[in-house]
Design a protein around this nucleic acid. Structure first.
Lengths: 348, 348
DNA sequence: TTGTATGCGTTATCAC
DNA sequence: GTGATAACGCATACAA
């Protein structure tokens, strides 16, 4: 009928036999409109398939549509979806847009890439940047200050702690993992640690593990400590090492710093003819959606990715909307849980 | 001094002693302004620290920097990442933005939600929309025409075929799966079919399977056919059914229409005390990254998600940049592969 | 080459 | 309760 243009508020008004003002009211302030009129307008809206134009809306109501940039190293990371959903939900509720920027993969000069991303977003006029899974050494402080855009760290933190960060208390969670293993009768525990140079969570988990070992006065030889880079294959390889020393260490359980590595480790154990958890118990870290699909299902530390995403975005919005209030820097720890499934056996 | 209000074009105009139109011109069409005037305006702009209001700009002039909308039902779907990476890569190379819009979850009125998303994107001034994983019944034709924005389907197709679609040839791939199973000595094959009302790939795979059965003249009783909704749990449940009729059907292999269902099915088989592939072979569909992490690793049809994303975006960009050329409608099939791993046993 | 006036789709301020 | 109508900030057809 009417070309290819969407219905506007005028069309609705005309069809409903009211003024545009009234239509606007039923949409934004329903109580101030008589019930009967409201019904007429609603039906017109439905029949015209009308939805308000966001652009015009923000122009009129002064409220600029703000957009915040989200920097993420790798969309293919399993927890990305949940994290993003949390951010997205919060953003949508506040009528703000997200500009997603994935760090270019396979970059050698990590630093440059991050800086590029920052600049790119700056030029895209974002009002704030959510920076995920990257550790920020203090060399960046200067550059970040110059950016003049508020930053919030997600799942990682700033070396000097002057940038607000949302995550769980990795050190404590790792400690709790050890405590759990101990409560299930395990004494000789190995660790597949995640050490990377651009992400400090791995290190914190490592420290937490060590504290647990110390607190419970458990034996620990170098052969029980092994490293990987967070992914499935790394876990597999790391477990191979652990297994090669098994005759010496006699470990009965393994703490893996990421679920992916835990799953790789499970596979490795199976391939070597042993069983999980009968021969070796394994506890993971993340509670990815896939850890419920493995065989055996993974016992693991559950990170509230959705909440973390939501809260970080929420805080960012506060910063943007009330710049005076000043951002509360430092780490904001969200609650985690230990999810008990099938990969840890109780020793009797 | 200036409170917290940004300078507007009028302020610049006044300070430079020109009209707003002129200011607008030096910004958008510099050649049409006398050099000297231009300089005056520029200096005014600089001294006022003026930057155009993007919102007002878009409201006024429909056109702006190109951005294409991407509608996706659920970010948490395992293949989303690869698909998006393909799109993103192509987009970035062409300097165009992506506006990602996840369909609100748990919606009952699916149609309305999709329409909303379309409108939302339209009002966000996108130049084109990539619509993923949704089947478009022809009832939508009217509304889509009225939208006046080019659409490209990704991983699914349009009922009438008048909208270009990028995907693999599901029917043929399913047929090939059967052929593969047959070549490995299987004769009695069950299917866990994916039937949903908003996605026609499941149906196509079902048809392809049936064709295979017919072509190779294999036995097929109703007890060999079972349905699920694509996810892990559905696969588990479906396999339970299949197993309950196992004494009758004696199936030695199962074709699962999605990897997630295949993985759920594997778990189900294990839980029932049988083994994969020793007792029952299972072949999946998708080649998700996790199908390489399961035990046993999944033999499956590999969809080139990255390429599909890239090609669909590429085509969209062509449409946008050369509207005259006209979009080539119909299905564009990309190459798939059968990836042989561990979940199918050769019968001797 | 530059200025005037109007439209873009909503919201908000008045009146009635 | 509801209806005109003036902003909102910019682009642009039309004049000059």
């Amino acid at each position: 009928m009417e070309g290819n243009n969407l219905a506007k508020i005028q069309d609705v008004a005309k069809l409903a036999g009211v003024s545009t003002a009234t239509v606007s009211r039923v949409l934004n302030n329903p109580e101030s409109v008589k019930n009967e009129t409201s019904r007429r307008v609603m039906s017109a809206i439905k029949s015209l398939d009308y939805t308000p134009n966001r652009v015009a809306k923000s122009l009129s109501s002064k409220a600029q549509d703000i957009t915040v940039g989200v920097i993420f190293p790798d969309i293919a990371t399993f927890y990305f979806a949940e994290l993003y959903k949390g951010m997205s939900r919060e953003a949508r509720e506040n009528n703000i847009n997200i500009l997603l920027h994935e760090l270019e993969e396979g970059a050698n000069a990590r630093e440059e890439t991050l800086m590029n991303a920052l600049h790119f977003l700056k030029k895209s006029n974002v009002s704030g940047i959510l920076l995920s899974s990257r550790y920020i050494p203090k060399e960046y402080d200067q550059a970040i200050k110059r950016l003049g855009i508020p930053l919030v760290m997600v799942l990682s933190s700033h070396e000097a702690g002057s940038i607000p960060a949302f995550k769980i208390d990795d050190k404590r969670a790792a400690f709790d993992s050890v405590a759990y293993l101990v409560s299930r009768g395990h004494q000789r525990i190995g660790i597949i640690s995640a050490i990377t140079n651009n992400h400090n969570s791995g290190e914190l988990r490592h420290q937490g593990f060590l504290q647990g070992i110390q607190y419970y006065n458990l034996p620990l030889s170098p052969e029980q400590i092994v490293y990987g880079k967070m992914r499935y294959d790394d876990g597999y390889k790391a477990m191979t090492e652990l297994l090669s020393n098994h005759h010496k260490t006699k470990i009965t359980a393994v703490f893996a710093a990421t679920d992916e590595m835990a799953i790789g480790a499970i596979r490795c154990v199976i391939d070597s003819g042993l069983k999980v958890p009968e021969d070796i118990s394994i506890i993971g870290y993340d509670n990815l959606s896939i850890s419920d699909m493995t065989i055996p299902k993974l016992t693991t530390i559950s990170q509230p990715f959705y909440e973390i995403g939501k809260e970080s975005m929420k805080h960012m919005i506060e910063i943007i909307k009330e710049p005076d209030k000043g951002q509360k820097s430092g780490n904001h720890f969200l609650a985690y849980q230990l999810v008990e499934r099938e990969s840890v056996k109780e020793l009797t």
